[in-house]
């Protein structure tokens, strides 16, 4: 019977043991980087739309409130994408022959809605409700980032479960007064922790509620 292990086997075994040890970390390191990269999450990548709508121009430049277009954010699970009519409220008389608004005009003429592509789209196994978040002190920019500075709209966060839980496990870090919800420039003040705990009381979010925020069934219904 031929020999199973030749003379070089010893070095091969040592090298493969060492490289196997480091390879394990390198492999999972690469997997981790790919998993959190914007290539996978689309975080920070502007999404192409039929009409290159600029939130920066409309929010920072003109001072239009989020709710002017996203009308159902306070009452519904869905914040609402504006119908063509909302755009045309102004654009029937402003920038009426701008080529970049041609799809808008066509949409109005043919009564076919524009095909806006969703930038922040949660998986279908997640239940999410906008209205409860804005009623209980979570502002737009907490999840959507500085939309008022986005010439084209992109996702500001990964929307991974770990990211959701960062806040669900400690909402006092992000919770704001009700009159600051739509303020895109709000930043947590230095004493946010104390203020946050007080706001939890003001919003009647009990310890029992806080525990429920960590339940699987809170979002996976």
């Amino acid at each position: 019977m031929a020999q199973i292990f030749g003379k070089s086997s010893s070095s091969i075994a040592r090298v493969s043991l060492v490289s196997g040890f480091f390879g394990f970390f390198v492999f999972w390191g690469v997997v981790y980087m790919i998993y959190w990269s914007s290539w996978t999450t689309a975080k920070g990548v502007p999404r192409e739309q039929e009409v290159p709508f600029s939130h920066q121009h409309h929010v920072s430049g003109l001072g239009i409130d989020c709710r002017y277009c996203h009308t159902s954010v306070e009452k519904s699970s869905f914040a609402g994408i504006p119908p063509t009519e909302t755009c045309m409220t102004c654009h029937s008389h402003v920038w009426t022959d701008a080529p970049m608004l041609a799809p808008e005009r066509q949409s109005l003429a043919t009564q076919q809605p524009l095909n806006w592509k969703r930038v922040n789209d949660l998986p279908d196994f997640v239940f999410f409700n906008h209205s409860i978040h804005v009623q209980k002190g979570i502002g737009c920019s907490t999840c959507h980032g500085p939309v008022n500075l986005m010439p084209l709209t992109w996702k500001a966060h990964s929307l991974y479960m770990r990211w959701c839980l960062d806040c669900h496990e400690a909402p006092e870090k992000q919770i704001r007064p009700r009159d600051q919800i739509y303020n895109m420039e709000w930043q947590p003040p230095p004493d946010q922790r104390e203020r946050g705990l007080q706001l939890l009381k003001d919003y009647h979010i009990s310890q029992q509620r806080l525990n429920q925020l960590r339940d699987c069934s809170m979002c996976h219904r």
């Binding site: 869905f78 609402g80 076919q112 809605p113 095909n115 998986p123 279908d124 196994f125």
Partner: peptide, 19 residues
């Protein structure tokens, strides 16, 4: 499971031919 066969508000759906 990410794209389940149900529709969210305002999603396109070719089942209905009018809009």
């Amino acid at each position: 499971m990410f794209q389940q066969p149900y529709s969210k508000p305002l999603e396109p759906n070719d089942f209905f031919q009018d809009n």
